[in-house]
């Protein structure tokens, strides 16, 4: 599904990614772990197409297509979804309008008809139930005044509604208490199936207790310095990142 080959990227002139190689096949869950400043969030933003991140070398191939040539919105339409570490508050745009607009764009791309209001609301309510979200959120402005946990649940709600091929989770566990973490993780597990994939970027192992990875990659100073199975995450949790840097 996704192939990242020898990827180098800069932010404000500083080289953050220095030759990343990852391959993700459908049905797989990959975790990228690493200390602060290792380049985890940069990788997530580069994949989504943020213009402040400049790719200087390498390639990203998604479903056989050169992703670097695509705009942010076209990448989303191709089936990539970034759950933000810090979801943006947008006063004045309701969750309803936001999700309905996004869903119709994505359905249009997939030659599907736009859902009418009733179908859309049914789908939305069903997904909100999974995330234990109050229906009052539908009319509220996107993320405005939401608590940290509510924002993360709102990200996963969007994930479930837009149903992409690849979900990028950027520190989705940060700022969540254990109950919220369970709800959010459950949302991601509901999303998962044999035809899609998850790339979770996380500092801590605890998210991976709930979203169990098939592969764990350790990122340090812009390079993947070790890859392994889920047991690698446990080992990291026990011994810390210093252990692996040596």
């Amino acid at each position: 599904m996704l192939k990242i080959n020898n990827l180098y990227a800069k932010v404000e002139g500083n080289e953050i990614l220095k030759g990343i190689n990852i391959e993700i096949k459908k049905g797989e869950v990959h975790a990228i772990m690493g200390p602060n400043g290792s380049g985890k969030s940069t990788l997530a933003n580069v994949l989504a197409g943020h213009k402040n991140y400049e790719v200087t070398k390498g390639e990203i191939i998604f479903e056989g297509q050169n992703f670097l040539e695509l705009s942010i919105e076209d990448r989303a339409k191709e089936g990539i979804f970034l759950a933000f570490q810090y979801p943006i508050e947008i006063p004045g745009i309701s969750n309803y309008t936001f999700l309905k607009t996004a869903l119709s764009e994505i359905r249009k791309k997939n030659s599907l008809e736009e859902l009418d209001s009733k179908e859309f609301m049914e789908m939305l309510k069903e997904k909100m139930k999974i995330l234990n979200m109050d229906e009052a959120f539908i009319q509220r402005s996107v993320n405005q005044g939401f608590s940290g946990g509510e924002k993360k649940r709102n990200e996963i709600l969007q994930l479930l509604m837009l149903n992409p091929k690849l979900a990028l989770l950027d520190e989705t566990d940060s700022g969540l208490d254990i109950d919220a973490l369970k709800i959010v993780s459950n949302g991601v597990n509901v999303f998962r199936n044999e035809n899609n994939a998850v790339l979770a970027v996380t500092h801590y192992q605890r998210l991976l207790n709930y979203i169990v990875p098939d592969f764990v990659h350790v990122l340090s100073k812009g390079k993947i310095i070790r890859s392994g199975g889920k047991e690698l995450a446990l080992e990291l949790e026990e011994k810390g990142y210093d252990w692996i840097k040596e």
Binding site: E73, A76, I88, T101, E105, L162
Partner: peptide
């Protein structure tokens, strides 16, 4: 905010109008 909206598949033009 524009990046966030576009990352959901919404075009630049529509994002700006929103």
């Amino acid at each position: 905010a524009k990046f966030y909206i576009k990352s959901r598949g919404i075009s630049e033009k529509v994002a700006e109008k929103m």
